[in-house]
Nucleic acid binder design. Sequence first.
DNA 1: CCGGATCCTAACGGATACTG
DNA 2: CAGTATCCGTTAGGATCCGG
Lengths: 146, 146
Amino acid sequence: MVTITAAGASELGTRAKPAFSLDDLNPYADGCPSRRLLDRIGDKWTVLVVGTLDDGPRRFSDIRRSVAGISQKMLTQTLRGLERDGLVNRTVYAEVPPRVEYELTVAGTTLLAPLKALERWSIEHFGDVSASWELYDDTHADSAES
Amino acid sequence: MVTITAAGASELGTRAKPAFSLDDLNPYADGCPSRRLLDRIGDKWTVLVVGTLDDGPRRFSDIRRSVAGISQKMLTQTLRGLERDGLVNRTVYAEVPPRVEYELTVAGTTLLAPLKALERWSIEHFGDVSASWELYDDTHADSAES
DNA sequence: CCGGATCCTAACGGATACTG
DNA sequence: CAGTATCCGTTAGGATCCGG
């Protein structure tokens, strides 16, 4: 199960080139696994959670405090997903009270750069976008107003 | 409405610096507008749709064909949102049959770079992640197996 | 302190039918 | 062709209780 076969990989058959071209798997295709990855990244909380882990390991409650508004359920779920993706390491310390630390893996660190870029973009452009909202809501006030 | 006041901006009072520091608005804060932006980006389809617009204006149905699996409802919704954000320009040609073209604005183009970076990351790392999935599902088979 | 299990609601999002 | 409106199933996700 979880057949990792890349789209069209089976057609390669006896081809000498084992690695498929990057162009072969485009996220725009429906079944493509890379699409699933984008979906995960597109997850509401993943960006925020990964973002908090850029300066070393952090505890569960610590992360939870950092990401305002996240519920414990969603944090657990997000962290589990990231762990399954191999982007985050989960370390349990058998103490009382229990302590669990989460840390980006090497792969997770590579994700950090694009994610931070997005975060930066959001911060830098939120002004423009807010202005655009006003303009849009103003010019389209005829269809639906307050 | 849609008060653009940055968090803590009111406290600045008579400060000579009208522009707030970028550090003042972090997407991790709950009410911060930049969070809303991240949410939009985190939308399931936005990344894909914006991605298809990187080589010039495209028609509705054209985009729809490019983004496999998107429904017409979701495409409309996504495009409307992007238009409201000022990231996409919508041009209606009064013809029969009607023709509507969508094009990235300047701001939209600035988003393209981080988005493409993410897309690239997904493609490059989906192999590692898939492998991680197998490993994870294998080692955690005790809790839930087929 | 960490996080699993459950319940329950709001939304997301698809299918379809209809307008210009 | 582009878009709206409606219906309706699926899921995301919050609240709460519980167990390690």
